[in-house]
Every structure is written in C-alpha cells, then in structure tokens.
C-alpha cells in the first residue's frame, strides 16, 4: 500500500515537469503583460524599462523559466507582481475555501443523484425514470451560471432567505458560513448531479442483470437488500471513479461559481491573476490545482481497494 502511494507520487514528478513547461509557455504566449497593468495610464519608457528589468522580463524565456523552476523547487512560488504577497501564501489562504465549496457540491450531487439514479433504474422506462431523466437532461442543458443567477434571484432577492454572495469562515460563524455556502454549492452540485444520475442509473441497470442478482433472488433475499447491498456496492465502483474525475471538473466549475457568488477561492484568484497578467500567480495556481487533481485521483484509486476486492494495488 505504502509502496503503491510512493510509486504514484514518483510518477507525479514527470507529469508536473511537463505541466510546468506548458503553463509557463501558455502564460507567456498570451498577449499583454503585467507591466501594462502595473503602468496603467503612465506612459514613461524609462519606468517601463526599469520594471521589465526588475521582474526579469527582459531575459530570454528559457532563462525566465529556469529561474522560476529553481525557485519553485526550493518552495518559493514567487510574489505577486500586483499585491506583492508571497504566492504560496495567497494560494494556501484561498484553497480551503474552494475545497469546502467543491466538497459541499459533491455532497449535494450525491444526495440528488444517488436516489434519483437508483429509482430511475428500478422503474426503468416508466414514469419515475422519465421524470428523473428529464430533470437530468434539463440539468445538463441549462448553463450553470444562469441557474446560479436564478437561484440568487429566487432565494435572496425575492424570498430573502439566503445571502446572494460572499463568504464567512465556518470558524467565525458556522451558521452564517453554511448560509453563504448553500447557493454556490447547489449551483455547482446540481451541475454535477445531472451526469452522475445518468451514470448511476446505467450502472444499476447493468448490475441488476448480473448473475449474482439471480442468485440473491434464488436464495430468498428481498429486493431491498438486493438493491441496497448487492447491487449498490457493485454500482459504486465506477461511480466513485467518475466522482473523482468530476471533482477535477468541480474545481474547474468553481471558477465560474466563485465569480458569480464572490466566493474567495482559487477559482477567483485565477481569474483575477489572468486579468492582471500576474504570471507567477497564474503559474502557481495552475500548478497547485494540478497537484490537487492528481492527489484526488490517487485517493480514488486507493478507495477502489476498499470497494473492489479484485483490484490489487501495486
């Protein structure tokens, strides 16, 4: 087990290296530079040249990359050109917020899609199935941000039950934190639940036709136990994979959701960084997101071992 984890972490190294090259090139290929942002309306070539020299932007790209990489290896992500804060610090401050949002969204998605998928499978091609699948299709077709805006209009503007945006730390005021969490989590979670419902339905239908279900019936087991234990445990194996993959998608979806709801996560940090052409910050955010993504996939693989005894880690 430990060996498996270590090996997977070692495999991470070349992936991260390639990723760092990609991110670096992409960021520097995008037109516009942080100097433009810093200079604003000032038109002074001397100041501009000084700034460019100060941030090393006059160096050839490979040299800039090398400097960034060597600093990175010492744990130095650089400082934001704009806020002058250390980048690692900025990311670590925002990251738990995004994780909280992503996790809450995953819970929302499961709470919706698990029962919906199971019921749709059990009532295949009958009314409950059509209902669940219709809603899932709607969920896939409706743009996420639009749904978020509708939720805000209904629950905060019209009914006034929930705050329309912002973030409160759970450590400060748990109740307020949850109220702020609900709308963004529903927005993001429903987006994920549409696909998940379809997946769970298909997987349940597939599993219900397996031989072991016939065995369970032949030994006199009730349908509730057959579905709830025998079938569900098998159906969860691919479902967990998809949740893991979609968790990466959740981080992605978090960008939009965080912008709509003024949620201080790394999604918004990334958007701001792109607007400001804050090279080091963009690079840092993407790299950290990639690391987290890979780590989540590792977690998924490990959880396999507990769900599927046929899978051998190593």
């Amino acid at each position: 087990m430990l060996k498996f984890v270590l090996r997977r972490l070692l495999q991470l190294i070349p992936v991260l290296f390639i990723l760092s090259v990609l991110v670096f090139s992409l960021v520097h290929l995008v037109p516009g530079s942080p100097i433009d942002v810093l200079m604003g309306d000032i038109r002074d070539p001397v100041v501009e040249a000084a700034l460019i020299a100060r941030y090393g932007l006059d160096q050839p790209l490979p040299v800039q990359y090398w400097r960034w990489l060597t600093n990175l290896l010492q744990g130095d992500f650089g400082t934001s050109i704009y806020s002058r804060e250390p980048i690692l610090h900025m990311i670590l401050a925002r990251f738990p917020n995004t994780l909280l949002l992503a996790f809450a969204s995953a819970v929302v998605a499961l709470v919706i899609s698990l029962p919906a998928g199971i019921i749709a499978a059990l009532y295949q091609n009958r009314l409950p199935d059509f209902g669940a699948m219709g809603i899932a299709l709607a969920g896939i077709s409706i743009p996420n941000f639009w749904f978020g805006i509708l939720l805000v209009l209904l629950f905060s503007q019209y009914l006034g039950w929930l705050p329309s945006m912002g973030y409160v730390s759970p450590a400060e005021d748990f109740g307020a934190a949850m109220r702020h969490l609900i709308l963004p989590a529903i927005t993001l979670g429903t987006a994920m639940s549409a696909n998940l419902t379809r997946l769970i339905r298909a997987e349940m239908i597939e599993q219900l036709s397996q031989d072991y279900v016939r065995t369970a019936r032949a030994k006199g087991l009730g349908e509730r136990m057959i579905v709830g234990v025998h079938v569900l445990k098998n159906a969860m194996i691919p479902t967990v994979t998809i949740i893991g993959i979609q968790f990466g998608g959740l981080l992605e979806g978090a960008v939009l959701t965080e912008v709509i709801f003024a949620w201080p996560g790394i999604g918004r940090l990334a958007v701001d960084a792109v607007y400001e052409r804050d090279y080091a910050l963009i690079q840092g955010v993407v790299l950290v997101a990639a690391i987290v993504y890979v780590l989540i996939n590792l977690l998924v693989d490990i959880s396999y071992r507990y769900l599927d005894p046929r899978v051998k880690l190593g």
Binding site: D211, Y212, T215, A216, V229, K233, N234, D308
Partner: peptide, 13 residues
C-alpha cells in the same frame, strides 16, 4: 447455476 464465476457477488466476501 452454470457460471460459478458470476453467480457469486464479486465484491462481497
């Protein structure tokens, strides 16, 4: 049944 391979549930002991 015929298929002892698939007649038992693969994920339960």
């Amino acid at each position: 049944f015929q298929e002892p391979m698939t007649s038992l549930n693969p994920v339960l002991t």
